[in-house]
């Protein structure tokens, strides 16, 4: 693989939230089985651009390096995905790296995904079990249910679905598909089900489930293959029933 002796990267740089952005190109030596993170590490060791100019090391975020934490999400050749599982041998060169566009930029490839965690709080994506005495073991979960619910629990709040969704942008308050799908997960749990009404009520709000436009990009962008559009349609049915029922009992 003679032509693979080096790797060419084109990276969108920005020194801070209010600083101007620029493109920088880098050429690094090829090693077998490299991924985007290991390329960024090479640049960190020797931050010199392809035309020999000294520059600062590129800033990015990562933790697990095995596609389970979601920290390293970025746009790689135009598609939102994890840098740690983006293998160089499978990418077209020059590899174009850019930060996610739906979140506030911190620096270079690093963004602040706080809004996703705020949205999880908005929809009560947890199971309240705190009390002053032991509540004992909860009800059992049927195995068939556990199997599909497990798939939903794989969400790592990485933001790829938010990046791909046309309804998530600066003009809309849409909380996005990830938080909606977590409502389905926690409502499926036998203990979580006891607080179902709180999560469904949160989905009725401005920016809630009705703001989905059924473009269905999210389900394709999700690296964990979470059936996001199935969750959305299922919760459409649940929120309709919930809202109608609540209204009729007023």
């Amino acid at each position: 693989m003679a032509e693979n002796k080096e790797i060419r990267l084109k990276i969108r740089r920005q020194d801070g939230p209010d600083k101007p952005s620029r493109w920088e190109e880098f050429t690094i030596e090829y090693h077998p089985k490299m991924n985007v993170i290991s390329c960024l590490m090479e640049i960190q060791k020797n931050p010199v651009t392809a035309d020999g100019k000294k520059t600062t090391a590129v800033v990015w975020e990562c933790n697990c390096l095995e596609e389970v934490c979601g920290a390293c999400s970025m746009n790689i050749n135009g598609q939102a995905r994890q840098a740690c599982s983006a293998l160089i041998d499978q990418l077209e060169q020059p590899i174009v790296l850019a930060p996610l566009t739906k979140f506030p930029l911190i620096r270079d490839l690093m963004v602040d995904r706080q809004i996703m965690f705020d949205n999880l709080k908005k929809v009560h994506a947890w199971i309240p079990i705190d009390g002053t005495y032991s509540l004992g073991p909860g009800p059992r979960m049927a195995e068939v249910k556990r199997q599909w619910a497990y798939e939903l629990s794989k969400c790592m709040t990485c933001g790829c679905c938010m990046e791909a969704c046309p309804q998530v942008n600066s003009r809309s308050k849409f909380i996005g598909p990830a938080a909606i799908s977590q409502v389905r997960l926690f409502n499926a749990h036998p203990t979580g089900e006891m607080n179902k009404h709180e999560r469904l009520a949160a989905l009725l709000d401005d920016g809630g489930i009705t703001d989905c436009g059924n473009a269905q990009n999210c389900v394709r962008a999700c690296p964990k293959n979470i059936p996001l559009t199935t969750s959305i349609a299922d919760l459409n049915r649940e929120t309709n029933k919930f809202a109608l029922n609540r209204w009729l009992r007023k």
Partner: peptide, 24 residues
Amino acid sequence: WVVYTGQSNVLRYGYARNWFYILQ
């Protein structure tokens, strides 16, 4: 108003359903 709150990205995500979204 709904049209205004959307932001199409068919050039990056050229899936059929995404085209239907903008065509709608």
